[in-house]
């Protein structure tokens, strides 16, 4: 906007309309304005606005709250299903294209894990994966009798969390950095000694490639919730938008503490409420 104003001012010369009673500032007398005006009209025909509106009714402190940045203190994984439910946690869910998608047992373990938070419904359509047209389980034949706790089962490594979650998390980050595999793959590669998943012989489907969206947000990822505000409503997209959507559900329905970057979200909600945002909280 400032650029346009500067341009218009550079193009303009002074003159008050006849019989004008408006206050005049910086007026220079006896300047021929006709050429500049004709030029402005040409620009108007070409699409330059004839009216500029300063939208701000100006609460700079509140506006600065819109610019807050959330830096994720630790890695966060998010699972979304086609009903708009979501889970956030720390476990990984294996994706194996050769077996037809995400491992079902991992999905269930992710949902059931004690560090997982569940969000029931409420995500906008833009963040919800399509439902399966027909259940398309993958072809893997393993893990029917899960939760037995035997070697080679992913469950074995839950002790990482149970014993000392925070230290384990750091260890796992190191492991992740040292490997291009996913977390679960890394664990398997490092610790599994027998009874690999692939060796079982069950008929139950083990993988699914539709109806879910799963993503990992890395530690130190910077998320700017203000980027998802269009006027005074939310326009949530992508993984960062998904994080903001869950943050909103948390702030609006659960608590205003205990979620990364919640103060940023609360500030924005306050701003939106003060500025007439009708859809500050879900449903959108």
């Amino acid at each position: 906007m400032h650029e346009i104003i500067q341009f218009i001012m550079d193009e303009s010369v002074t003159d008050l309309p006849e019989n004008s009673t408006v206050k005049s500032v910086g007026k220079s007398a006896n300047v021929d304005h006709s050429a500049a005006r004709r030029n402005l009209l040409k620009l108007g025909v070409a699409g330059m606005p004839m009216v500029l509106t300063l939208k701000a009714s100006a609460r700079q402190l509140a506006i600065s709250q819109l610019n807050c940045v959330i830096v994720l203190p630790s890695r966060m994984r998010i699972l979304v299903d086609s009903d708009g439910n979501a889970w956030s946690g720390t476990r990984n869910i294996s994706y194996d294209a050769s077996k037809g998608g995400y491992k079902l047992s991992d999905i269930q373990k992710f949902k059931d894990h004690r560090n997982t938070r569940e969000f029931t419904g409420g995500l906008p359509n833009s963040l919800t994966p399509s439902a399966c047209s027909s259940y398309s389980y993958g072809g893997g034949q393993d893990d029917c009798d899960d939760d037995s706790g035997g070697k080679g089962d992913d469950d074995d490594y839950d002790y990482y969390y149970d014993a000392d979650f925070e230290n384990a998390s750091s260890d796992l980050d190191l492991l992740m950095q040292a490997s291009s595999n996913t977390y679960a793959d890394g664990i398997e590669a490092g610790y599994s000694s027998k009874d690999d998943d692939d060796d079982d012989d069950c008929e139950e489907p083990t993988h699914i490639d539709c109806g879910y969206y799963f993503t990992t947000l890395r530690r130190n990822r910077e998320i700017r919730p203000g980027d998802f505000i269009d006027g005074s409503v939310w326009d949530l997209r992508g993984d960062d938008g998904l994080f903001v959507a869950l943050s909103l559900q948390y702030a609006c329905g659960v608590s205003e503490t205990g979620w990364p970057g919640i103060s940023c979200i609360v500030s924005i909600l306050t701003y939106l409420r003060q500025n007439g945002g009708s859809n500050a909280c879900p449903p959108y």
């Binding site: 303009s12 309309p17 304005h33 005006r37 004839m50 009216v51 300063l54």
Partner: peptide
């Protein structure tokens, strides 16, 4: 509206 607008000679001319 408590809004401020920036008008050029044409748009302000229409208003007057």
């Amino acid at each position: 509206s408590a809004e401020t607008h920036f008008l050029n000679f044409l748009s302000f001319g229409i208003v007057t």
